[in-house]
Design a protein around this nucleic acid. Structure first.
Length: 428
RNA sequence: GGAGAGGUGGCCGAGUCGGCCGAAGGCAGCUGCCUGCUAAGCAGUUGUGGGGGUAACACUCCACCGUGGGUUCGAAUCCCACCCUCUCCGCCA
């Protein structure tokens, strides 16, 4: 009966119901907590009975043991205990059902927003925090990346759909090289200058890992699942990397831990039919360099700022204009307490599009995944986890094609990448 | 895929024919004593989760020896299923 799987702890709900209710309301979550509290009360009352009976049984068993050793008869107590055990079994059956129901509710409650998060219903109420870079001016009509890419013969959507279907792409020649250059550039930057340790995790994970970071049980529809082998394809490196330390107690001196990983990400994109159907923006498979942090609770908001800056650094070095947006309560992901999105400028769409999402999950994922640390005071506490894209590689490639496009259809390679592309300056 | 070995506390490791085993012993850690300092030595201490209780401690009860079931008054110890790790063979990047 190890009941540690709590995203929002039942204790918090019990002791500070108001705070939890307000938090959920701000998010627009309509969960009914009274049913949950009711279950919890039932659970505890049965637990109390069970523990009393077990106490009785333990005492009796000790007694029987003693009598037997002394060679005396224990028939009398033996008969009485038979019924007690059956009663315990019955109650254990009842409590298991209740716990199950309780956990099912708890696992679907989202994280509570941090106080600095603006209240709002959807992305319209997100708040722009800062802008960077000059929006490029073109003497011609800027073209969308899919046209540029197809004309340069570096992206082939037709053949990709023959191989797999819609929402897949085939990169060729300089296109594939550019993707690889971006990956290496980003990983090198994070490992050598930002202090991250590179990892290369499994791209398939089990359901425990998915539950740990919050994808399950609520968002199963968005995942690719391998039915026969009970694995899921990761929708982001966040899942395997955060779960590196699942069920561990870390040493305080080891914190903070910074990891970076480049993995493919697999998303079903259910419910986004008709959205971004052309181009590389919304694919079933794309590469992403991810940054993941584990830290002490008191540090996590500083770490979030740093993490966001690390992602911004990639765009600055590539010379891509962007803005940072603070997501409002209604637009945040399920597990997050606070999220900054970084949006890159896309000339053909004449707008900013998300290229990174940096979140502080506080102890939400740590509770689910049971990741703790031993503090100086000798207490074991949950760590805080954070992660952010640094960056989504496919969308970065899109941004480069569109922002660096020339009138003759060629694309200038940003200086920072040239070393990774054999010194070439242009894709022709 | 086939054959075998194993999963015990921070680590190593013991658990006899089921009964003071939450678990010997060692290491590491912490606290005293000793010591010019360090080392050694001596004594004590050190798991996790939950319920009750407290202002908070204290205290107390329950559970936890890979996971889930079963047998039994009672299981780390017996039975069943599953998971994982390791070794060998086969196949394979």
């Amino acid at each position: 009966m190890l009941r540690k799987l709590h995203m929002l702890s039942i204790e918090l709900i019990r002791k500070d119901l108001k705070r939890v209710e307000e938090g959920l309301k701000k998010r627009g979550d309509k969960s009914d907590l009274s049913a949950l509290l009711n279950l919890d009360e039932q659970r505890r009352s049965i637990l109390k009975k069970i523990e009393e009976l077990r106490f009785q049984r333990n005492n009796a068993s000790d007694e029987i043991g003693k009598l037997k050793r002394e060679g005396k008869s224990a028939e009398e107590i033996l008969g009485q205990m038979k019924g007690v055990s059956e009663e315990i079994k019955k109650l254990e059956g009842e409590i298991a059902l209740i716990e199950n129901e309780e956990d099912n509710i708890l696992l679907t409650l989202p994280n509570l927003p941090h106080e600095s998060v603006p209240e709002g219903r959807d992305e319209i109420e997100n708040v722009e925090i800062r802008k960077w870079g000059e929006i490029p001016q073109f003497s011609f009509e800027p073209r969308p990346h899919w046209e540029i890419g197809e004309d340069l013969k570096i992206i082939d959507f037709q053949r990709a759909s023959a191989i797999a279907g819609a929402r897949f792409a085939l990169l060729k020649g300089k296109g594939a090289l550019l993707e690889r250059a971006l990956i290496n550039f980003m990983l090198d930057l994070h490992t050598t200058e930002h202090g991250y340790t590179e990892v290369l995790p499994p791209f398939m994970v089990n359901s425990k890992a998915m539950t740990g970071t919050g994808q399950l049980p609520k968002f199963e529809d968005e995942l690719f699942k391998l039915e026969r082998d009970r694995y899921y394809l990761i929708p982001t490196a966040e899942v395997p990397v955060t779960n590196i330390h699942r069920e561990e107690i870390l040493q305080e001196e080891a914190l903070p831990l910074y990891y970076t990983a480049c993995t493919p990400c697999f998303r079903r994109e259910a419910g986004s039919y008709g959205k971004d159907t052309r181009g590389l923006i919304r694919q079933h498979q794309f590469n992403k360099v991810e940054m993941v942090k584990f830290c002490k609770p008191q540090d996590s908001y500083d770490e979030l700022e740093k993490l966001t800056n690390n992602a911004e650094d990639v765009l600055q070095r590539l010379g891509l204009p962007y803005r940072v947006v603070l997501l409002c309560t209604g637009d945040m992901g399920f597990s997050s307490a606070k999220t900054y999105d970084i949006e890159v400028w896309l000339p053909a769409q004449n707008t900013y599009r998300e290229i990174s999402s940096c979140s502080n999950f506080e102890d939400f994922q740590a509770r689910r995944a049971d990741i703790r640390y031993k503090s100086a005071k000798g207490r074991t506490e949950f760590v805080h986890t954070l992660n952010g894209s640094g960056l989504a590689v496919g969308r970065t490639l899109v941004a480069i094609l569109e922002n660096y496009q020339q009138e003759d259809g060629t694309v200038i390679i940003p200086e920072a990448l040239r070393g990774y592309m054999g010194g070439e300056e242009k894709i022709t």
